[in-house]
Design a binder for these strands. Structure first.
Lengths: 74, 74
DNA sequence: TAAGTCAACGGACTATGAGTCACATCTGGA
DNA sequence: TCCAGATGTGACTCATAGTCCGTTGACTTA
């Protein structure tokens, strides 16, 4: 599985856990709603600045964000 | 401190720990030699695919890469 | 001196990510 | 069945990610 796909899955997982809509999260992260959609669906090769914005909007540390079995090598 | 700067510091730290030159790491990660220089110096807004390539070239898991005090929020 | 390795930088170029839009589709509730 | 909020998609512009050529300076070893 592609890292950008794993990233999207992790974002979606954490967003849903917080009960937020894509639009609400996008607003908080200061990105476009449709951009957030394509990120979650693994369609975008997101750059690190936006990765930082999105993780911050999820109220989680970088460490905790990536410390998930989603990112385990297979 | 910017996430792309933190990323560069972490890459350099791990590269030096392995005794590799920038060129050797760049070759292994299949990115350009001059690109690796600017990444380490925090000049590049690296996209997640290249983040994955570089971390893989460092022979470390995603989890371990980001589980560093370098990425602690200040 | 010379010759080698390495890090950093720059110019010019191509590929692609960022950011946005109109529109379509899905979903649950009234 | 209808509606409204939520999600998905294709296409587009423009900035920049990323490559490829070369040079320079610091350091080391012969």
């Amino acid at each position: 599985m592609d890292l950008q796909v794993q990233f999207g899955k992790r974002v979606r997982e954490l967003r849903l856990a917080k009960g937020l809509s894509q639009e609400a999260l996008a607003l908080k992260a200061e990105v476009d709603r449709t951009y957030m959609t394509s990120v979650e669906n693994g369609k975008r090769n997101v750059a690190i600045q936006n990765i930082g914005k999105i993780i911050a909007a999820l109220d989680i540390s970088i460490q905790d964000f990536f410390n998930s079995e989603i990112f385990t090598i297979k």
